[in-house]
Amino acid sequence: MDILIPFQIALSMLASGDVELMRIIGLSLTVSLTAVLASLVIGLPMGALLATYRFPGRTALIVVSNTFLGMPPVVIGLVIYLLISRSGPLGFMGILYTPAAMMLAQTVLVLPLSIALSRQAFESLNGEYAPLFQSLGLGRFDRVRALVFEARVALLTIGLACFGRAISEVGAVMIVGGNIRHSTRVMTTSIALATSMGELAFAMALGLVLLLVALTINIVSQLMRHSFRNLGHDV
């Protein structure tokens, strides 16, 4: 029955809007949303290009991108750490142990997912629309733009999938962020720390929020698909 006590405390902390808890949740959302946005801005056009054009190095790019899909987050964290540490090639930026470093790590983490999923979506749509685009004489930029618009329903789902991966990640942000209180502590790193310190209620509260985020992502995804299908834009 002991497990229920931290659960009750967690609920009351959430209900009372515990300042520390809210700060951590806020930073987690800010870091992950920024990383997802950056990965989509870079990944979607890359996915569209890989899906629609044959160019030298295309296969190599796909192989590299797919390899990064299976890369453990701690390895990505380590690589980013080496790059941005004071003696690293990007050390001059001075972003180690800041939210910016965590955003960078999460961006690198979800970018391959954004590229792979969008390439898949674009390949299917390009097969359907290629004759029309060719007939209309659309240039490369206009084709990619049109494909992005036509794939908007799938791309929203891709964005949500990327967000799910980013918000639940712990290893990379721990390495490059340092889990510094009031500065770089996010939900996942806080859970790891609180659990190791025996602060189960705090860890549980954050765990509940993460669960809630996962649930919300799924509900929003389903609602959007349902809504678009009703509008005939997802048929």
């Binding site: 629309y129 049109a146 329903v153 834009h233 997802d234």
Partner: peptide
Amino acid sequence: FQKPIITR
């Protein structure tokens, strides 16, 4: 085209 290509 014989089968119209229609956008979303």
